[in-house]
Design a protein around this nucleic acid. Sequence first.
DNA 1: TCAAAGTTCGGACATTTGTCCTTTTCTTGT
DNA 2: ACAAGAAAAGGACAAATGTCCGAACTTTGA
Lengths: 186, 186
Amino acid sequence: MLRTNTEFLSYIDKLYQSNELEVSLYHFEKGKLLFHQGEPCHRVLVIKEGIVKCFFNEENGKDYIVEFLGRGEILGEIEAIRQMDGLCNVAALTEIKVYVLAVPFFRALLTKDLTLNKLLLEELAERIVNTSSRASFQQLYTVEHGLAKLLELQEKQGIAITKDDMAAYLGITLRSLNRALKDFSI
Amino acid sequence: MLRTNTEFLSYIDKLYQSNELEVSLYHFEKGKLLFHQGEPCHRVLVIKEGIVKCFFNEENGKDYIVEFLGRGEILGEIEAIRQMDGLCNVAALTEIKVYVLAVPFFRALLTKDLTLNKLLLEELAERIVNTSSRASFQQLYTVEHGLAKLLELQEKQGIAITKDDMAAYLGITLRSLNRALKDFSI
DNA sequence: TCAAAGTTCGGACATTTGTCCTTTTCTTGT
DNA sequence: ACAAGAAAAGGACAAATGTCCGAACTTTGA
């Protein structure tokens, strides 16, 4: 549930070392909004440290968290590839360090670097696997199943997700989450 | 909701014309299962004609339709890229014609053909956009919203989806679908 | 044409989830 | 330490969805 991508990180680490003009390293504080749904994207980010959440804000005001991303995960690549406005919001859940690439540089790189293409294809394929199997799971199983997995993740990763975020990830209201948590501890 | 990809189709058309040893054209009848969830995949398909459904079969026996795919859409590419067993089932909803590539050939092509890489990146990015925004939408909105879109699709495309498939796409039971349909026609 | 079998549909009730609002618990400043 | 305000939790009812099963409708074969 918290995705990471070591291979991609080391690729970008190297790129950074050999090309500091085009790749820079930034630092953002917890809570900062890195991408804004519906707005133009000018940069592609790769997480060096920290955790972010990607979430949709639907017209009815509700949020849905698509995924939590950590080390080596890339952000803004879909928008860069398809030349579209921000698909969803991205907010820093912890303090983060990110590599930043301008979109034109990223796109130029794509036209000539097969390694980058390969890494990206693997990353996108992995995301489809995750997103689609989660959608299926959430539609067809009860909340408890999803909650169990989410609690397990927090345990393993040693991270604390707020209840609001847990509910947004499960696609339910806070009230329902509280109920599920209560049922859980019986 | 019914996805197609003209660009990809013409790429494969050309590949077929220049390389009939490695790319072949097959024909399958309606109802045929082209990929089986959890089983090894040996081939990559590109739809030349017809429509298929990709669906998960969950352990509780329920189905969830991830997407409907038509002309120019590729199948089995995720499994080929990540070298994994079938992610979901794929069944022909109509008679279909497909180009067939063996996985090793497809992978070899990936290592040297930037055009293919580009087309695939665009396709995978598009799928992520669709899958994730649909997941969000379905979690956060009522069934009627989803149903409206689905009916619209059938109208536009002139295709008839069975009620079972409509329910599986919406992630609800047939009973709930019938109710929604009734409410709809008021 | 008719009856039997299969299929689809909808009623009735159970369960789940959401909404709204009160109660409880936690913070904060003096 | 305590009161006031803020944040979190839970009760009560409403709405949505699922399950089960019988009724209505279709198909098929003699």
